[in-house]
Design a binder for these strands. Structure first.
Length: 426
RNA sequence: GGAGAGGUGGCUGAGCGGUUGAAAGCACCGCACUCGAAAUGCGGCAUACUCGUAAGGGUAUCGGGGGUUCGAAUCCCCCCCUCUCCGCCA
């Protein structure tokens, strides 16, 4: 959510920000509505002030036993009643229109974000490890099927397309990956583990920016609760409506949860394998920080995600998203892409974003600095650390051997009680 | 699911139709006392919007939304949430 005052102050900068995202200017429409709303509000408030005055005078007149004066006042009050109702309606209508206009506008890109229309303009900021270009390149779906440990057909019978059933060693490997990631974020990176709800109210989704614009990407229950598309929703909304002390910041939380996505616009894309599923596990990191710290926190968070891939010895590159590829709530984002051997390309496995105060405004999440008057909105950041399903894909393809068996990365050995290789049927 | 009790400022908690934006306490800030601190005393201390160059006004907000009334934190209705008891249940 944008600060109307900031738009009033510098509409040009606002429109320039939208233009960087490839969107048309909006400040004129916003400011017109804003002005109309304020005029309506001023008129309403004048009427309300008079009503208050009259009501107080009625009380006094009655107390003094002056029924003549009271009657005169009463008839004025009667007249005010209708006009106040009307003006209040007009004001509420304008406020609603302004709010829904504003609620649909994305965050503005940070100055540091590279210019560009789409993902082709994203900039590589660093690269780590050697891509697997020689050796076998069977994809994880074929490997999994051959091992008889990954069953898309069974999943389709149960649930339809874009689900998978993992068995035996692969189910264990998937669990080990999640466990390992969560342990690393908590024990080594200072995030507090949280086990949050997976079903949330629409208000929570509004707070992080999935609603009202991206309803079609989400699964909804019959009682109007929604399955989280990412634990970002649950974790970030932990501070919704809260007024924190600066001493509570930074607040760093993490969770390993299933994520549910309708993948509405993605039909035909990544139809084979586990790359794009309706349900997948992910370790999510969320940081709630003071505004001055959010730039540094984004770097920190990105390195917390990268650390997982380094420990797993999986090659990756880190990309700075360009203005046209930025998500709705983000002001700046780094994607981490892991090498996927079968596709001989890097695929997104983490996305770390600084949302500035954009989500905080929508959620009303503020903090107070001792000795200072008032409060300020916090800054929120979120990042995957990492997507477990895609990590499983990368591990399988990177650690496969000629026989189609999969070696288990050193870092996961403590989680698999002695298992070091996954072979057919085990 | 049934019965009951509640949701008030950062927190605790009074108020239950009129001058209450809201007592009191805690927390916090300033001042005094002190070598300093504690304790104590005095004072200050909500948020949002809005009008105004400013000084300074105004309006709204007592879980949310409607309603009654000249006037609602206070009365009525709906919803949400919390707690207690009963039932059911992983």
């Amino acid at each position: 959510m944008h600060d109307v005052k900031a738009i009033r102050l510098d509409p040009i900068a606002f429109d320039r920000g939208l233009a960087r995202r490839g969107l048309p200017a909006a400040s004129e429409a916003v400011l017109a509505l804003d002005q109309a709303r304020r005029d309506a509000q001023t008129a309403l408030q004048e009427a309300q002030a008079r009503r208050k005055q009259v009501a107080a005078l009625v009380g006094k007149a009655k107390a003094a036993g002056d029924s003549k004066a009271a009657d005169a006042l009463l008839s004025e009050a009667e007249a005010l009643k209708d006009s106040i109702a009307e003006q209040a309606g007009a004001e509420a209508d304008l406020a609603e229109r302004l709010h829904s206009l504003l609620a649909g506008l994305p965050n503005l890109p940070d100055a540091a974000v590279p210019e560009g229309r789409d993902e082709s303009a994203n900039q590589e900021v660093r690269r780590w490890g050697e891509p697997w270009t020689a050796g076998p390149r069977r994809d994880h779906a074929d490997l999994g099927a051959a091992l008889k440990l990954m069953d898309f057909e069974a999943a389709a019978r149960l649930s339809g397309a874009r689900f998978v059933v993992l068995k035996g060693g692969l189910a264990r490997l998937e669990r080990a990956l999640g466990q390992f990631m969560l342990d690393m974020q908590t024990a080594e990176h200072g995030y507090t583990e949280v086990a949050p709800p997976l079903l949330v109210r629409r208000e929570a989704l509004y707070g992080t920016g999935q609603l009202p614009k991206f309803e079609e990407d989400l699964f909804r229950t019959t009682d109007d609760r929604w399955l989280i598309p990412t634990a970002e929703v649950s974790l970030t909304n932990l501070v919704a409506g809260q007024l924190m002390d600066e001493a509570d910041l930074p607040l760093r939380v993490t969770a390993l949860t299933p994520c549910f996505r309708a993948e509405a616009g993605a039909s035909g894309r990544d139809t084979k394998g586990m790359i794009r599923q309706h349900q997948f596990n992910k370790v999510e990191m969320v940081s709630i920080v003071a505004p001055e710290q959010s730039d540094a926190e984004l770097e920190r968070m990105t390195s917390c995600a990268e650390a997982i891939l380094k420990r797993l010895e999986l090659p990756f590159r880190t990309m700075a998203l360009c203005t046209g590829d930025l998500g709705f709530s983000a002001r700046r984002t780094f994607d981490i892409e892991v090498w996927v051997a079968s596709q001989q390309t890097y695929r997104e496995i983490s996305s770390c974003s600084n949302c500035g105060d954009f989500q905080a405004r929508r959620m009303d999440a503020r903090f107070r600095t001792p000795g200072e008057k008032g409060s300020r909105f916090v800054h929120t950041l979120n990042g995957s650390g990492l997507a477990v399903g895609r990590a499983l894909v990368a591990v399988m393809e990177h650690y496969q051997d000629e026989d189609g068996a999969i070696a288990i990365p050193q870092a996961l050995h403590p989680y698999l009680s002695g298992l070091t290789r996954i072979e057919a049927g085990a």
